[in-house]
Design a binder for these strands. Sequence first.
DNA 1: TTCCAGGGGTAGA
DNA 2: TCTACCCATGGA
Length: 305
Amino acid sequence: MIQKTDLIITTPSPFNFAATISSHGWVDLPPNYCDAETNSMRRIEQLSPGNVVILQIYDVNSDDPSLIGVQVESENLLLESEKQEILHKLWDMLRLDEDLSEFYAICQKRGAPWDEMTRGYGRILRSPTFFEDVVKTICTTNVQWGGTRGMIKRLVENYGEPYPGNPALRTFPSPEVIAALPFDEFHANVRMGYRSAYIHLLSQRVVLGEVDLEAMKRSPLPTNELKKELLSIKGVGNYAAANLLMLAGRYDELTVDTVFRQFMRERYFQNQIPTDKEALTIYEDWGKWKYLAYWFEIWQYYNNQ
DNA sequence: TTCCAGGGGTAGA
DNA sequence: TCTACCCATGGA
C-alpha cells in the first residue's frame, strides 16, 4: 500500500529554491530528476533502516520562498526517525546551514548586478553523501555532459536499490554495493572508461575505512590542506578537487575547466585565449568567495543569452 | 572517420 | 612545479 507523507521545511531567509535546484547539472543526474514544468525536483533515496522512498521537493508558495514542501512516497508508513532523516538530508543538499551573510554583505556593497545575489542565490545543490558527489565529479572529467549523464544513469540503473512500487526507480548505489562487485562486471556495465577503476577502488577504500569522505566534507582543515587530501583520491585532479571543495562549502578555489576557459575568453578577454593564471586574476579580490562570484556571473551569462 | 570533451596519472625533467 | 604522453568512452 503506497503511503504519502507531506513534510515542510522552513528555510533561513533569504532562500531561492528555483535557483538552488537549477544551480548546476546535479539536478539532472539520477537519482535526481528535474521537473521544469512544476519547478520541482524528485529524488529516489534509501533511508537508514533500508526503506527506499521517492521524495518530491517543491516550492510551497512562490510568494513565500522560505517554505519548501516534500511529498514522500513510500511502501510503509514513515517512522518519525525516517522523517527526521529526510529533513536532515534535504537540509544538507540545499545547504540551509551555510552562512552566506558575509558574502551577501560584499555583494550588497558592490551594488548591481551583485546585489541580486542577496535574493537567496548561491546555495548550490549537492548530494546527501560526499561519496555521491565525488563519484559524480569524477564522471564529469574529460567528457561532455551527455557522457556524464549516461555514466551516472547506467550506474544507478544497474546498481541502485529499486523502489518497491516501481523497480525502474533506483537510488544512488552505496560504496558497499560497488565494492562487492567483480571489477570486470562493474566496468562492462557502467561504461565509464578509465574512470570505472577509480570509482571501484574508491568504493573499496571507503568500505575498508581507508578514506572517510564524510569527514573530509566537514573537515576543519585549511582549504589548501583539504585540497591535498582530495587530490590523493585517484581520479581527482585540480578541476575535480576544486569542484569538491565547492561542494564541501569552500569557495576559495575555481574550477579551471573548458567551461571556465571559454567563459573567461568571451566575457573578459575579447575572445583572446588567456593563460589560466591571467584568467584566475579576475576573481582574485573575492577572497574566500571566488567560486560563488564566478558561479553567479556564469549563471547570469548563460541564462540571459 | 576523426576529433575532443566541465582532465588525470605517471614519468621525467 | 612543469611538460609530454597516454588514457576509455561516446557524441558531434
